[in-house]
């Protein structure tokens, strides 16, 4: 029963996984997320710092 379609697996899955998230894209997403969060955090912290200056 397993015979009919058990051979499709091997290569298709790695290809599809690669299609979904190539390493470069993963890396780019990570860079982009860090960039957004980093800048937002930087701005947020500097607002807090500015606030501390104006006691």
């Amino acid at each position: 029963m397993l015979s009919t379609s058990s051979y499709a697996q091997g290569c298709t899955q790695c290809r599809d996984n690669a299609a979904a998230t190539p390493i470069a894209t993963q890396h780019a997403y990570r860079t982009a997320i860090l960039l957004l969060v980093g800048v937002a955090f930087g701005i947020g912290s500097s607002v807090v710092l500015v606030g501390r200056r104006f006691r």
Binding site: Y29, A32, L35
Partner: peptide, 21 residues
């Protein structure tokens, strides 16, 4: 600062789009 976030948002999309195939 808000404007910087605007450009950063575009730049982060730039980084992603550059490598998306």
């Amino acid at each position: 600062a808000g404007d910087l976030m605007f450009f950063i948002a575009i730049v982060s999309v730039f980084f992603v789009a550059r490598t998306t195939g």
